[in-house]
Each structure stands twice: as C-alpha cells, then as structure tokens.
Computed example of a mutant assay.
Amino acid sequence: MALYDAVVVGAGIEGSATAYNLAKNGQRTLLLEQFPLPHSRGSSHGQSRITRVAYGKDDHYANMMKEGGKLWRELERESGTSLFLNCGCLAVGTPDNPFIKGTISSLARHRVNHDVLSYKNLQNRYPMLSLPPDHVGVLDYSGGVLMADKALQAFQKMYVRYGGELRDGEKVINIIPGSDVTIITSKGQYKARKLVLTVGPWATKLLPQLGIHIPLKVVLISVLYWKEKTAGEFSSDRFPAFIHDGEDIHVYALPSLEYPGHVKVCLHVGPVTNPDSRDKADTREVITEMQQYVSKYMPSLKSTPSIIETCMYTNTPDKQFVLDHHPAWKNIIIGAGFSGHGFKLSPVVGKVLSEMVMDKSPSYDLAPCQIDRLIQPKSQL
C-alpha cells in the first residue's frame, strides 16, 4: 500500500485549498471527496460569495484577509481564471451598531480605502434601497464578490496540475490513528503520514468517532434570488455586495450575477439540520421573514423569491474557526467550524493547514482557533 505524505478528506473550498498548497510544496497528496464532483450538497457550491477585509474585533481574520486578497490574485494568474469582482462591499446599520463600529475601526486600522456614508448619502447612491433614517453605511472599496464555483474548480485544477491525486465519490468509512494514519473508504484503503480533515458539516459525525466532542451546529441557509422590477438596477456597477446588520437583522445580498435580472438576498441564519437529511429542515419561517425584509428594505425587487437554493453553515459557538491538531494524535489536523465566513479566507486557511502538515510554524497566531476551547466532557453532551 502506497504511503502518502498527506491525505485530505473533504474537497470543499478549505480542503481543496489545503491540498493545492501541499501539492505545490512537493507533498505526495491524496484529496478524497465523498460525493461525485461537482456537487451542491455541502458548503462550497454556488456562483458567488462576499469578500471583505474588515473584521471588527476579530483582527486576526483581518490580518489574514490582507494576504488572502494577494493569494486569490495568485490563483487567478496560475489558473487563468477570473475569480474576483471588485464591486465593493457596503455594510449598513445604526452608527452605534457594534458591527458597523467594528467595520469602520478595522478598515481605518488596516488603511483600507473606504467611505462612511450618511443616510442622505445612502439614499443618493443607492436609491434601490429603502433604509431607516437612523442608518449609516460603510463602503469598503476593496471588497466585492468571489466566483465560488470557479474558485473551487481553480484550486482543484491547479492541485492536479501540481501532481496531486483527486478521488471523488469515495466516502471515508473509518480512520485508524497511529504513527501512520489508515483511512478506509467505500472503495479502498490508504495510509498517510498526516491526515487533514476538512469535512464541513460532516465534522459533526466524523470527529466524535475520533473522540472529539465539540459543539458544532449545522444550519441550513436558504439561498434566495429575487427578480428586479427594473432591469439592471442591481447590476454590479450600481450595487455592491451588501450586509445589513441589526438587533434582529442579519441579511446579506449580492448584485445580479448568477441569474439574469435576479439578486441574491439571504438571511445569515437558518434552522439546525442534519447534513445527511438537510432537505427535511423547515425553512418556511426564513422565507416569510425574508419576504417581509425585501418588501420593506428592497422594494425595487419582487417580494417573492423566484429561485430557492440551499447551503449549509457549520457554526462554532464563538464563530471562530477550528484550525488545530487532534489533541491525542498530532498527525491528524482539523479544519472545521467555518461559520459562514470561511470561503474568502480559504487561500490562507489552506496555507496554514499545509504548514501544520509540513511541521512548519503557522504564518498566523492560531490561538483563537484552538480546539481545546470547545472540547466538552461527555457528561455535558
């Protein structure tokens, strides 16, 4: 049986970015994916994701994002694929909202070009929005949209070009830790010096088999597309990526890109679900809430979604990632709990996880992402 330097389980954006970095650094790497590629059953599919630099109190992510932008451009050059649309990212809320205050502070601290917009400025620049008069806006000129499916395919394409081996439609059945790790799948058996687990929502099922009990929560996000009443009003040259944060509002939107004349507007939360039976989750409350939101704040859109898709978030209680070694088996490395904001950081996550595989000091302080902050005694489960 061949011995790999590393096996990466899970070919979503984090796993594919990790495998890409490993192969690029000369590591003999196998990337395993349980579903046939491409697929829409996890957290990395779809055409678009918001990207931005500001991270308020989570300054370690803002530091990562500064390099993340450079790494996305490097992947664009390597793969010959356009992955980033620089249309800006607009955050709106009340001036005393912690998210708004944190965004302004982060952008200023990291010297990112931005504007703070009064209510009148918001009305003038974005007449398609109907926001409350106590709102202000923060426009991050460095933000915009990542082309998600193309980004995932670019990582996988370059991974294979660098000599990596990719096997899809192959589910991991069992993992046997040891000085070398044995991975048993639905189709075979492999050995690796190091194992990386980037399995998204399935971390809730796989990690307990390895004795790790952490409070990950999988939620189903309804990805909703709403038709413009006036064609072109929400095009990317008029409407940036958008985040509306408030006491009871956690909404994001992207300009009309995927479907002609349709705008993606979604609630950032959803019902808890099982990744193996996610379609059983009841999303009626989310749809109703979003219909009310669109009618009130985006009256330039029709108030019933034309297209409904789904995605899953795997949330940690503090919304911080898990980037760490297994507490007992240091040759098993875990990337989990990306909490709906990990996609844009995936080039840096992949770099950091690959550094851990290669026994290098990580490029960033990973103290906020250590797994022991979340491990629960079985009596508390």
Rank of each mutant, 00 (worst) to 15 (best):
S306M: 04
K296L: 13
I307W: 00
D318V: 02
N331L: 09
E289N: 13
D279T: 13
E309P: 02
V322L: 04
V286N: 14
I307L: 13
I334P: 02
H326M: 11
Y297H: 04
K344N: 07
H326R: 04
L323Q: 08
K280D: 11
G335M: 04
Y297C: 01
S300L: 10
I334G: 00
T314A: 03
Q291P: 00
D282C: 11
V294R: 01
I333T: 02
G335N: 05
H326P: 10
A336L: 08
M312C: 09
T304R: 11
K302A: 12
S295V: 12
K344S: 13
P327I: 01
Y293S: 10
H326T: 08
V322T: 06
W329Y: 15
Y297K: 06
K344A: 02
P299D: 03
Y313A: 06
I333W: 07
P305E: 09
G337P: 03
K319L: 14
A336C: 02
A281D: 01
Q292C: 10
G340I: 10
E309N: 14
H341L: 06
N315I: 08
E285I: 12
P305D: 06
V322M: 09
E285S: 13
N315C: 12
H325L: 13
S300K: 15
K319P: 00
F343P: 01
R284E: 15
C311T: 05
